[in-house]
């Protein structure tokens, strides 16, 4: 079952995630790469926010006379099979392609932090129960859960986003748990306990802010993976539905055009996905590395 989408299903499994982290680390070693990636992300967000100002044409305007028009003055990146301007669809596609992952990351981070904090702070049976629950989630590949969710809730953005959010919780939860356990050992936590502060206050007001940087870095990395997975679902026709401009769906639409010799329609959104995912990963890992170095340098 999982072999259907092996290249993109990794987000649901533990081991590949580690491999992906390692594999991309070399990029982060270089300073200019990090800066470039940050630039790409800023550009991406600006594009999404100001899409109506940037897009040269209406992304939904069908003009069959321009079907599969090559790149040129009228259509900078050409037009798709329905004659819609590819560049404009790419620009508007940034919106759906970023909003989905944003929701996934927001939900998974909030839930994951809560789960990890409770598990790491309380320890004992609470930790054990939460750990088992997260292992169960881990056991199901995220994309598979998403496919099931779509079957139940129907196609559209909602089902995949919820499914991916659930699938990402263990990544955040485990990270937060280990960070909290480490931070708990620090003497300042004991000092607050002796001062009469409640566990809740110490955990939320002191421990959480001290681990927030690392959690944030992980969230940025997760953003990239969520973007990729949601694009995969859209590509399979389970996520964003046509005619909405979305990178994953655009790749899928563009496949037939490849047979007719027009590469741009599938290639442009594909490149956009790759660039965005790499940029998010580089930035996230870069921030995490920096925080780790500051930690050891202390």
């Amino acid at each position: 079952m999982t072999a259907v989408v092996p290249g993109m299903a990794g987000a649901g499994k533990g081991a590949p995630a580690v491999a992906r982290r390692r594999g991309l680390r070399w990029v982060t070693a270089s300073g200019p790469g990090f800066v470039l990636a940050v630039g790409v992300l800023v550009l991406l967000v600006l594009t999404a926010v100001f899409a109506p100002l940037i897009a040269p044409a209406d992304p939904y305007l069908v003009d069959l006379s321009a079907s599969l028009a090559p790149p040129g003055p009228g259509h900078l990146l050409g037009a798709d099979d329905s004659g819609r301007d590819i560049l404009s669809r790419l620009v508007y596609g940034a919106r759906t392609s970023l909003l989905g992952p944003l929701a996934v990351v927001a939900i998974s981070t909030v839930v994951g932090v809560a789960v990890g904090l409770v598990a790491g702070w309380r320890g004992g049976w609470v930790d054990a129960v939460l750990a088992r629950a997260q292992e169960v989630v881990f056991a199901f590949p995220g994309l598979l859960v998403a496919v099931l969710a779509v079957a139940v809730l129907g196609p559209g953005q909602l089902a995949p986003v919820l499914a991916m959010a659930v699938a990402f919780v263990p990544y955040v939860g485990r990270l937060v748990r280990s960070l909290v356990m480490q931070e708990r050992q620090r003497t300042y936590v004991s000092a607050y306990q002796v001062g009469g502060f409640s566990s809740f206050t110490i955990a939320v007001r002191h421990v959480l802010p001290n681990i927030a940087g690392v959690v944030l870095a992980q969230a940025v990395v997760n953003f990239g993976y969520a973007l990729m997975d949601l694009a995969a679902l859209s590509y399979l026709g389970l996520g964003v539905q046509p005619p909405t401009a979305d990178w994953g769906a655009m790749v899928s639409d563009g496949q037939t055009a490849i047979l007719e010799g027009a590469l741009v329609q599938a290639l442009a959104p594909g490149v956009a996905i790759v660039v965005a995912v790499v940029a998010f990963t580089v930035v996230g890992e870069g921030v995490a590395d920096r925080l780790a170095r500051r930690e050891t340098g202390r």
């Binding site: 003497t187 300042y188 004991s190 000092a191 607050y192 001062g195 802010p209 001290n210």
Partner: peptide
Amino acid sequence: VQMVFQDPYLSLDPRV
């Protein structure tokens, strides 16, 4: 009862 710990580098929240 209150307590003062050994290592002054670890007994304060670095952010406060």
